[in-house]
Amino acid sequence: MNITQILLGSTAALLLVALILSYGSMKSGEEEDGRKHSATELMQENARLQAEITRLRTGQQLPGTVADVQKPDSMSQEKLREIEERNRLLQEQIAAEKKKREQAEAETLAMTERQSGKLNKEERRAKIIAQAMLMAQVKEVAEQDGIYVIVIDVKMRERVQIGTELAIRRGTGIIGRLTVSQVDDGGNYFADPLPGSFPGGSVDVKIGDELIVPPY
């Protein structure tokens, strides 16, 4: 083998090594470019997820503006994995916040429905009380040592007799109850306060109070 052949062989070997190194470098660069692209998309998504979490926690209707993320100058495989893990955690937080918000909305709706039902029931009761037929009216009230003498003017005698229980109506509310206890020879009706029927505990009966059949 002469010197020319040796030189040609060496040159070919060097060219092959250079080609291999060039290919490896090009492939490595392509892989990093791919990581940069993936990282940019993930970081943009992470910023959007963080804005959504803030919106859910503060009760805003729309999320805040999310600025565009700049493509990183370099991106290692380890750094990309960190960004991917961050994305996973943010998605879990989003799911948890949405669940909390749905539960809170469901509780609020249930409470509103209960309040609405209660209000409707109270309105119906007030209407029934206001429209109830007048059975009698308090004519006289006397009290001594906790003993009451109450004379009532009965309007519907056929429906009021000894033992009849009547509710005291003021406006659209009931403030207590009386029980007809006696009818004298002169046709005067007497009533006694029904213990425990007065919300404040103290008997509250006034001349002119209207008496009706107790509502349900």
Rank of each mutant, 00 (worst) to 15 (best):
Q182A: 10
E123Y: 12
P214S: 05
L211Y: 15
I207S: 03
G200N: 13
I94Q: 01
I147V: 13
L80V: 08
Q91S: 07
Q61D: 13
Q182C: 02
R125K: 12
L19M: 13
V160L: 06
G187Y: 09
G173P: 02
S22C: 05
I152D: 03
E82Y: 06
K155W: 00
L109F: 09
T112F: 07
Q61S: 13
D209V: 11
R159A: 12
P193M: 10
A18Q: 09
M135P: 00
D73E: 12
Q93F: 02
K121R: 15
R81W: 06
T40E: 11
R86N: 15
L178T: 06
Y216H: 13
A126D: 12
K155G: 00
I53D: 03
Q131V: 03
V203N: 06
I147N: 08
E45A: 14
T172K: 14
L178I: 05
A47M: 04
V17C: 05
V141R: 04
I94P: 02
E32F: 07
Q182N: 14
Q144G: 00
K100N: 11
L211D: 10
R57G: 08
A191P: 08
I168N: 02
Q60G: 11
L119R: 15
K121Q: 15
T172G: 01
A142G: 00
E165P: 00
L49A: 12
Q77M: 06
I128Y: 01
I6H: 06
G186W: 06
T164R: 05
I212H: 05
I147F: 14
E143H: 01
D73S: 10
V203W: 08
N188D: 14
G173I: 08
Q93T: 01
Q161I: 01
K98W: 06
R81K: 13
K71S: 11
E85G: 03
I212L: 09
E85S: 13
Y148D: 01
E210A: 14
R57Q: 15
E41M: 07
V154Y: 06
R57N: 14
Q5S: 12
V205T: 08
E122I: 05
E92Y: 04
P215W: 00
E105C: 01
G201S: 07
E97F: 04
D33Q: 15
D153N: 14
K36C: 03
R170C: 04
E32N: 04
N87K: 06
P63T: 09
I150Y: 03
